[in-house]
Computed example of a mutant assay.
Amino acid sequence: MDHNINLGALRDHLIAIALNAGAMITQASSSATASLPADGTNNPSTKKNSADLVTETDKAVEDFISRDLKTTYPNCHFMGEETYVPGQKLGPEPTFIVDPIDGTTNFVHGWPYVSVSLGFAVGREPVVGVVYNPFSGRLYHGVKGRGSFVRIVRGDRVAEAAEVAGEAEEDRRLPLRQPAPPLTGLDECVVAIEYGSDRSGENWRTKVDTWAALGASKDEGGAMVHSARALGSAALNLCGVAEGTLDAYWEGGCWAWDVCAGWVVLKEAGGVIVDGNPGRWEIPVDHRKYLAVRGAEGSKGQRELVEEFWGFVKGRMEYEH
């Protein structure tokens, strides 16, 4: 297989797909604050439990994305949330890793923190990422070695690749604050966390106990973070860390399609992504346990913050791949 793919052109094509997919999502929503159409066609069904939702829009958007990519890049593999087969492994081949709606629960409830997440990996390494929230208009993109950026898309866009090619004039390089301020400790951080759909067992206890330790006062032995946020989209959380509006994001239970695109955006903004369990600095994209920390000028305080965070993880998370 020819791996000599023009990543800039591929990024441009993914941006066009994301804009079209975003238009599908907003059109399926009765409004940005009430996402169930009157005809009931988008009523959610469940997968493994009542907190793991899927809608017909998830399926339709993934079908649109996969048909486009398989036509345009027929020699590349495809991994999508809604067509994933249990046991399917990410191989070294060039692979699109896609979540058609990251934040389905938000979409169902009308909370406009929803994204199209389009990643591309080669040799199991994320190299291109596009994340688009069609409700806020924030579109993030990055290519390995070329930086990451955010632009604001005004209104619904149905776009051809030529309209959005390259790094547009309205793109703003990430992180938003230049130079990025140093990381001085968890007690000055806003940290993203997520419930996930697993609500029992050791993984759940590890999450709950760790959240308590992060939030507790230092007199009680805690980190006393500025605050925690549970916003409901792994891809957008990673982009928030990339832009510096979040300082860190800790999660277990995600899949490769949740993080691949945001991984590129984060790392190209100077951020790091390491094991959600203490001790491992290099992890694969399908690791399922993640700690992301924003960039800082000269990486000042970054390693120290990771190690401080690991010190507050109460237990270990383990997930099947």
Results as ranks from 00 to 15, higher is better:
274 V>G: 11
83 T>K: 11
229 R>H: 08
293 V>W: 14
274 V>C: 14
135 F>Y: 14
39 D>G: 09
198 D>C: 02
32 A>F: 01
62 E>L: 04
267 K>I: 11
262 G>C: 11
21 A>I: 07
101 I>G: 02
217 S>Q: 01
278 P>A: 06
113 Y>M: 10
89 K>I: 09
289 K>P: 00
165 A>R: 06
114 V>W: 00
210 T>M: 01
228 A>H: 09
275 D>Y: 03
296 A>G: 10
54 V>H: 07
186 L>T: 05
55 T>N: 04
135 F>T: 04
98 V>Q: 06
265 V>G: 11
238 L>Y: 10
232 G>P: 15
212 A>T: 05
216 A>T: 00
142 G>W: 11
320 E>A: 03
90 L>K: 12
34 A>N: 14
111 W>H: 13
269 A>T: 13
78 F>M: 08
191 V>H: 08
63 D>I: 14
227 S>M: 09
83 T>L: 11
106 N>M: 03
265 V>Y: 06
183 L>A: 09
193 I>V: 15
19 L>H: 02
314 K>N: 03
146 R>I: 00
282 E>I: 12
33 T>R: 10
74 P>A: 05
80 G>T: 07
102 D>K: 02
165 A>H: 06
64 F>V: 08
234 A>P: 12
77 H>K: 15
85 V>F: 04
36 L>S: 07
307 E>K: 04
120 F>G: 11
251 E>F: 15
130 V>G: 03
214 L>F: 10
284 P>S: 10
179 P>V: 13
288 R>P: 11
247 D>F: 02
290 Y>F: 15
63 D>G: 13
311 G>N: 05
119 G>P: 03
